[in-house]
Design a protein around this nucleic acid. Structure first.
Lengths: 179, 179
DNA sequence: CGAGAAGTTCAAGAACAAATGAACAAAATG
DNA sequence: CATTTTGTTCATTTGTTCTTGAACTTCTCG
């Protein structure tokens, strides 16, 4: 019994929400994710749906109300979980459903998740690259060598600055630390 | 007379650089752009090539040494220019070439460009969306209304924080203001 | 157990973004 | 000017990423 309601809007017939508020949240987060490129837009939509709901939602709530495939819902939820953007809560009414989902609401934690999963892995790689660049710079002679070393040094400075800024960013954005 | 030299490396036969240092810079910036999704990776490669060069390069230097089409080079350079990431310098030896290109080296300015061109336009749109969400929240009754208003308020808080952080970010990252 | 529902995985296809190349415009050259 | 060279535009091709759907595994409950 699919309780999905066809959206009347001519614009985006993609989302079949029960109400306008959810609909708008779904679109909002969907676009935001697309814009920042955190991952597939559908994960934004899933988060948006959860964000608009007072109670945790079940797996089937999600793929039915968003009118996406079970596959997308499953993958999306796993990704969101790995980013720490949604949590699973034990089924209250233990009705076949294995778990229910609710959104992480702390901006600090949301950022942390993205940073840890997405940018930190990069850190190691870029360190290696810089080391190699420095080597290569050293091989040249005279003026060219000097030039290259200065470039590499600048890259290292950039890198250092970016790294230093991360904690500050999180400190500024996170609420006074929740729990 | 294409002076491009086939890269010997088995891995990425895409870039035909004169030397390893340029090659590495091209890859480095190419990947960085891809990672952050500022635009097509080719703009990173162009920037990387310029970054590795002591002298400004001409249009044909660029598409020949990167072995990309003139079209890509043209579009990429325009995009980079609109972001303030490359500058054009008047031809020194006035030899047919209309202009030469050099990279912007100030991290502050590079960030500014991306922020102004990419995130600021978003700001207006998201403000509109939030206004609409607030409206929708208000329509509901009782408990649901309260819940929705709290959600909208949180979104507004997030937005305010993100906005406030931008200048700080730039201040922290930019060198003491160059020129 | 065993039947049915919940959830996962992955190959195939749809949707999207980027690069190409050829036709075109603008400058320089002579 | 006529010709060659430099650079731009844009329709088409190429390549990547997302979603789907169906087969599969896991869980629930009689």
């Amino acid at each position: 019994m699919s309780t999905a309601i066809k959206a009347v809007q001519p614009a985006v017939p993609r989302f079949l929400a029960a109400d306008e508020f959810s609909r708008e949240c779904v679109e909002f987060f969907g676009e935001t994710v697309q814009l920042f490129g955190f991952g597939p837009p559908s994960i934004g939509e899933i988060y948006g749906l959860l964000y608009a709901s007072q109670e945790p939602l079940s797996f089937s709530d999600i793929f039915e109300r968003l009118d996406i495939s079970k596959g997308s819902a499953s993958q999306g939820l796993n990704l969101l979980r790995s980013l720490g953007a949604v949590h699973t809560v034990a089924p209250v009414d233990a009705n076949g459903r294995r778990e229910y989902f609710s959104p992480e609401l702390s901006l600090r934690k949301l950022l942390r998740g993205v940073l840890d999963e997405r940018v930190s892995p990069l850190a190691g790689k870029s360190a290696g690259r810089l080391a190699r660049l420095r080597e290569l710079a050293d091989w040249a002679g005279g003026r060219e060598r000097k030039f290259r070393l200065s470039r590499v040094q600048q890259l290292e400075t950039w890198r250092r600055r970016l790294k230093a800024v991360m904690p500050v960013l999180i400190a500024l954005l996170g609420p006074k630390s929740k729990k």
